[in-house]
Amino acid sequence: MENGDEGPVTGSAQVDWEALARFLAGESPAEEADAVRAWLARDRSRHDVLSALDTTLDRASAPPAGLDVEAALRGVHARMDAPETPVIPFRAPARRAAPAPRRMPAPWLRAAAAIVLLLGVGWFTWRMMTGPGSARPPVSFATGVGQRDTVRLGDGTMVILGPDSRLTLARDYGREARQVELRGEAMFDVPHDEARPFTVRAGGAWVRDLGTTFSVQADSAAGVRVVVTQGAVALGTGEAREDEAVVLRQGDRGTLAAGRIQAERAVATADDVAWTQGRLVFRDAPFGQVAAELRRWYGLHLRAGDATVATRRLTASFQGEPPGDVLRVVGLALGAEVTMRGDTAVFRAASPGAPR
């Protein structure tokens, strides 16, 4: 499975990641399973890593409703094809005496990294970069413009990260509490733990899990927006106590703007989380929100050229259309003329009689 090392793919210079995944899942044919065991026996470090991966697989659970599997797999393959795999010091599972950290052979590290991405990149990155008693560096996950990604954290929390967004875990994540900081948009599916509350901090607000699936969007133009699709959350501001927070339940939508929380009961629809499926939906959205979303999804910069356009609202949906088509649709819907100035689209109210 490495250069000069026969394994599940005899004579191949590449590691057969699918064979290792089948072995971990208990689905290997007898001959393939024997080949994997023999390959593992030739190098103890291989056995150590597979043991850690097996623990990850044991902890895995079903993904939340709405998970975009295709997007997740695209992210996996993009990482697998990266020219270099970062070197991560390995620490053995707790059930064995922990040896001193050691550098793993690059080909095997690449194989381990690929399998880890399939089983849960979030947990394994955290586990491999830290150890008992070590000072944990903050771990972040980020996406670029128009990109989404899915990560599983060490406690089993599944996160779908929206375009141009960043999720940062607290240094002590998972010890006594589970706190993360969000810029942008994310959907969280959280296993509830009374002893270790899960809290998202975003844009001056905090959102605490009460056993739930929920999305959070933090944007400088529109404030913070929370949609609960299952269970309940507490939404608070600044250093407010939990008994001062607003409780949102399934189907509720909560917003924090200008320091005030507003709760809308039983109004959330599938459109509120359509972004997890790659669909951008606006329902009576103000111009500032439209501009912020199109920047994150398409890299477009929108500006209202007059006060009239700035007060207009948009109802439309997009799913992968070219940027030029998006601008034309927005212009028509807002009754505005669009002029490009460098990388900025300026919208002005269309003159009476102007072609639409």
Score class of each variant (00 low, 15 high):
E2H: 02
V9G: 15
G11S: 09
A19K: 07
L20Y: 08
A25E: 15
E27G: 08
E32N: 01
R37C: 01
R37L: 05
A38K: 11
R42A: 11
D43G: 04
S45F: 08
D48E: 10
L50V: 05
T55G: 11
D58L: 03
A60R: 14
P64C: 12
V76K: 00
R79L: 11
M80F: 12
T85R: 02
P86H: 08
R91Q: 12
A92H: 00
P93T: 01
A97Y: 00
P101R: 07
L109G: 10
R110W: 13
R110F: 10
V121I: 03
F124V: 11
F124I: 14
W126L: 15
G131H: 05
V139C: 01
G144K: 02
R152D: 01
M158Q: 10
R171S: 14
V180T: 08
V180P: 15
G184C: 01
E185R: 10
V190H: 13
H192Q: 09
A202C: 14
G203C: 03
D209R: 13
D209Q: 08
D209M: 13
V216E: 13
Q217R: 12
G223K: 11
G223C: 05
R225H: 09
R225K: 10
A234C: 03
G238P: 03
R241S: 14
L248W: 08
A258T: 12
R260W: 04
I261D: 05
Q262W: 06
A263Q: 05
P286S: 02
F287R: 01
G288V: 14
W297C: 07
W297F: 03
Y298T: 06
L300F: 08
R303K: 15
R303A: 13
G305I: 07
A307F: 01
T311D: 13
R312L: 02
L314N: 07
L314Y: 00
L314A: 04
A316G: 02
S317L: 00
E321Q: 13
G331M: 12
L332F: 09
L332A: 13
G335K: 00
E337W: 03
T339Y: 11
A345D: 01
A350S: 11
P352A: 00
